[in-house]
């Protein structure tokens, strides 16, 4: 249980450090910056876990793990989950989420038709801008290439498509 409490505290520390970083530094690759900062905090997690008593001075015996390594491993796993499944996903949603952007546009500008939303998307940048951003990401990861107005899958794009097609069939996603 101590590991879980330490992971919650460290997640809060990590969130504050990220916020300070975003507000004070000119970060270009934000996701990479976030992951880098998280890795830097992992040794701090281990040190805090090692230096604090097994019951943190407040936990009852029923919530105290007799084998500290097991508690540390679960704490680190919880910390990784809170970061990669929580904080990093919050960033992805806030910076790239299509549905969220539509919601923010509707909440800010009031009722709109679909055609109005297509043009107003992301403070007037439009849906084509959004799709160009997605294609840029695919090109950066060498999954597609764009030549003369045509988009083509690369070899690694084909392999990735096969995996995702299988996953979609497994989850019956049309």
């Amino acid at each position: 249980m101590k590991g879980i409490i330490v992971s919650a505290v460290m997640a809060l520390v990590c969130f504050c450090a990220l916020t300070i970083g975003f507000r004070t530094l000119r970060v270009r690759r934000r996701a990479a910056f976030m992951v880098g900062l998280w890795f830097l905090t992992v040794p701090a997690f281990v040190i805090v876990h090692r230096l604090t008593p097994a019951n943190l001075g407040l936990l009852p015996a029923s919530l105290t793990e007799p084998w500290p390594l097991a508690d540390l491993l679960l704490g680190l796993f919880a910390y990784a989950a809170v970061f990669f499944g929580g904080i990093l996903q919050l960033y992805n949603l806030a910076d790239r989420g299509l549905s969220l952007r539509v919601l923010i546009d509707l909440a800010a500008a009031g009722p709109m038709t679909v055609d109005q939303l297509v043009k107003a998307y992301s403070a007037g940048q439009g849906l084509r801008w959004m799709y160009a951003k997605r294609l840029e990401g695919l090109i950066d990861h060498d999954l597609v290439r764009c030549d003369g107005g045509c988009v083509t899958l690369t070899a690694s794009g084909r392999r990735t498509a096969i995996v995702f097609a299988w996953l979609q069939r497994a989850l019956r996603i049309e």
């Binding site: 997605r134 999954l143 597609v144 988009v151 083509t152 899958l153």
Partner: peptide, 21 residues
């Protein structure tokens, strides 16, 4: 994901190529 759907759409056509439009 629109990126994943793009990959799947490209994979479903001959030569895995489509015009951007």
């Amino acid at each position: 994901s629109l990126s994943v759907r793009t990959l799947l759409m490209l994979a479903s056509v001959e030569e895995a190529t489509l015009p951007l439009e």
